[in-house]
């Protein structure tokens, strides 16, 4: 049992990052970006290109990938969210438009990098280190560490920086924030850009676990979204907890019950959580105001 929990940690850290990116956009701008999973895919491909093809090194791969994907995220805010806000379109239109963006990004990636899965090994060993009956690879340790590091930096940014404070204000009460002179257009932009960059890191981290493919975004995006909702959509600590929780549940369900039904178990759990605790497992219940 402990073995499966340990195995669930690296994927859990990745889910946590993706969950964070969904939650962050939802909290700051009140919408969902359905192309968030494709930011993960794009991050993995750009990281792969910088590290494996251009040979510019492992650390630069992270920064270049984050920057490039952030620009794509801001582009989505600028060319999709902004016009939709201006025309007062219903929320479902944002969903369809970002799904449209997801289709475009996925197929552009297919044109650029081709249909074959790419291998993206990390510069650390993939040999398991044994501790009694348990074992973990240095690669997994690195994935979890980078994930946690990014979460800490992100939390620090939200709490301490001026931009972070503005974002939290908008998340709490968009209308009041406007009255206080906060530029909500700017906060939309920061939310989309930062979330995309977080997604990019998740993409690089997942690359050595799975192969990099043009359609990897849909699956990881959904799992990240599920994690966010199970943990508490819109909350940073809730999303992180949700990510690790789903990662561990998947690992245990896949190992102990059935690998074929693994995802079905995750989704059943999701529906149960939504039914019994719609605000997520790790948040206090809130009542709807009239």
């Amino acid at each position: 049992m402990i073995r499966y929990i340990l195995n669930g940690l690296p994927i859990g850290a990745i889910y946590a990052l993706v969950a964070l990116s969904y939650s962050f956009i939802y909290a700051a701008s009140g919408v969902l970006n359905w192309s968030q999973g494709d930011m993960v895919m794009l991050g993995a491909y750009i990281g792969f290109t910088v590290y494996q093809i251009l040979n510019l090194g492992f650390v630069p791969a992270f920064f270049i990938s984050m920057l490039a994907v952030a620009i794509v995220g801001i582009g989505i805010q600028r060319f999709i969210l902004r016009p939709l806000r201006k025309s007062n379109a219903p929320a479902i239109n944002v969903t369809i438009a970002t799904l449209g963006a997801s289709i475009i990004i996925r197929n552009l990636a297919l044109m650029i990098w081709g249909p074959d899965a790419q291998l993206f090994p990390f510069p650390v060993s993939n040999k398991p280190i044994s501790m009694g009956s348990l074992s973990i690879t240095p690669q997994d340790i690195l994935i979890v560490l980078i994930g946690i590091l990014l979460m800490i930096i992100f939390q620090y940014f939200l709490k301490k920086s001026k931009e972070g404070k503005a974002l939290r204000a908008v998340a709490q009460d968009r209308y009041a924030a406007v009255l206080m002179g906060i530029d909500t257009e700017q906060s939309d932009r920061s939310a989309f850009g930062l979330s995309a960059a977080i997604g990019a890191v998740a993409g690089i981290l997942i690359a050595p676990i799975f192969f990099v493919t043009f359609n990897m975004g849909a699956g990881i995006g959904l799992k990240g979204f599920v994690s966010a909702v199970v943990g508490g959509l819109g909350s940073v600590p809730g999303s992180i907890a949700g990510g690790f929780f789903i990662g561990i549940v998947e690992s245990v369900a896949g190992g102990k019950i059935s690998s074929g039904y693994r995802d079905a178990i995750t989704y059943t759990l999701l529906i149960l959580v939504l039914w019994l605790r719609p605000t997520g497992l790790f948040l206090k219940k809130r009542k709807q105001k009239v």
């Binding site: 939802y26 969902l32 929320a91 969903t95 959904l222 979204f225 599920v226 909702v229 959509l233 059935s258 074929g260 039904y261 995802d263 079905a264 989704y267 059943t268 999701l270 529906i271 149960l272 939504l274 039914w275 719609p278």
Partner: peptide
Amino acid sequence: SIPAMKLSGPYLVLATVGFGEIVRLVLLN
């Protein structure tokens, strides 16, 4: 509709996504 009744917005969307995926995975397995 039992869980969906209490849900709205992104929560309802995700619950229905989950339902669709469960059906597909059961058909597959």
